[in-house]
Amino acid sequence: MALTPETLPRHELNGLPVRVVESDDASRVGLEGRVVVETTNTLSIEVCVPPEAERDRGGNAAECDEGASRVVMVPKSGSTFEFAITDDAADAAKASGTASKLADAKPEPTEESSAGSDCAGEDVAYVTVDGSRLLSQPARRTETNGDSPWQ
């Protein structure tokens, strides 16, 4: 039960590389960085601001370790996020053909999350999740009992 495209909405989001694919606010579309803080209604994304010279060359935002970075708070509702999950998670996605399996197992969340997990590169899987699926207290997202939508 590692971090796979299926478990991602219930798993830890802090620390994952993320990109805002869609948002009600056009200025937030395309934001790329790492999730650093999660609250019930927002994700705070640490975005690297490359120095001018690097920006011209199209510096890779996800790669920069030092240098300026700022934290942008993005509301979960009204946004669509694309998480990049690495290592064994991607292999599992390839093996199981995630999209079809998701449709069989959980018909209800299909429209949001089945778009996810097209594999690019060796061991990176991209998972697209509608932000409204993540609306929950961070600590309670994992739970499956009660009236939880994560069942």
Partner: peptide
């Protein structure tokens, strides 16, 4: 149970994140 495994993994991940943040001097995070 499966969701307990997710919880245990989240704890492990948060441990790593906390260690990294503390090493960066980001004590509040």
């Amino acid at each position: 149970h499966a969701d307990v495994t997710v919880a245990a993994e989240r704890i492990d991940r948060l441990h790593e994140l906390a260690r990294a943040a503390a090493a960066d001097g980001d004590t509040d995070r």
